[in-house]
């Protein structure tokens, strides 16, 4: 039996605007360590909502969310921010780098916030991550000057800097051409296989989903497969 990293028990969520609407219905989900999971479904089926909820950013739900065996339901926002900082990495469709900072600084910021290592060590680690993603040569460039594929790889490096147990992607390849998509997919694959990190990615990309370990399909707020 593999170690369970994330578990939800009976998660239900409503949207109240413009009118009350049940967007998630009794979601029970177990994710094991090192799994590469794709979350698919039509637009509006609730997959992104579920992912933000799993990422601890959305706290307005009923049910229980456990990550690493720790119950996170009902925790304060500041505690959850600290938890995300340490245990969860994010990769978004739009790359969301801080434009005034260099690639290297963007990667370093979450680690500086965590403050686990001295700055020199963090810099070394950030360079290693950039190297692993093949963009070490772009380290000193302003992040706004990079191409889309490069930006996405910087974002992945940033997601990895604190060695999180869980990496969440919101259509991480949604804005990339097929070459860059393949690169990103390969990186994800390598992370799960070589480093035992868990990935949960919302995607519309059928190839991407097909190649992952497990596909969870959602429809009308329920898991259907």
């Amino acid at each position: 039996m593999k170690e369970i990293i994330l578990e939800t028990k009976g998660i239900t969520k409503y949207f109240h605007e413009p009118q009350t609407f049940q967007v998630l219905k009794d979601i029970n989900l177990k994710v094991v360590k090192g799994e590469f999971l794709s979350l698919v479904g039509k637009s509006g089926c609730g997959k992104s909502t579920l992912m933000y909820l799993l990422s601890t950013m959305d706290t307005d739900y009923e049910g229980i969310l456990e990550i690493n065996g720790e119950n996170l339901t009902g925790r304060r926002a500041d505690y959850l921010a600290g938890f995300r900082n340490q245990h969860i990495g994010f990769v978004f469709q739009f790359h969301f780098l801080l434009p005034e900072f260099t690639s290297l600084q963007n990667v370093m910021i979450p680690a500086l916030k965590l403050g686990k290592y001295p700055e020199s060590k963090i810099k070394k680690r950030a360079m290693e991550k950039l190297e692993m993603l093949g963009i070490a040569d772009q380290a000193e460039k302003m992040s706004s000057k990079l191409s889309g594929g490069q930006q996405q790889r910087v974002a992945i490096a940033r997601a990895l800097i604190n060695d999180p147990a869980l990496i969440m992607g919101d259509e991480p390849t949604g804005n990339l051409d097929s070459t860059n998509s393949d690169i990103v997919f390969d990186i994800f694959r390598k992370l799960t296989r070589d480093f035992g990190q868990t990935i949960i990615a919302v995607t519309h990309d059928d190839d991407f989903a097909a190649n992952s370990d497990r596909i969870i399909e959602m429809s009308d707020g329920k898991i259907v497969g």
């Binding site: 921010a81 938890f83 900082n85 801080l98 434009p99 910021i109 979450p110 916030k113």
Partner: peptide, 16 residues
């Protein structure tokens, strides 16, 4: 706004 969102997503608390 985008920067604030990403900072909060990557673990910066409201007070930070």
């Amino acid at each position: 706004m985008k920067d604030i969102a990403i900072l909060k997503a990557t673990g910066f608390a409201a007070k930070d």
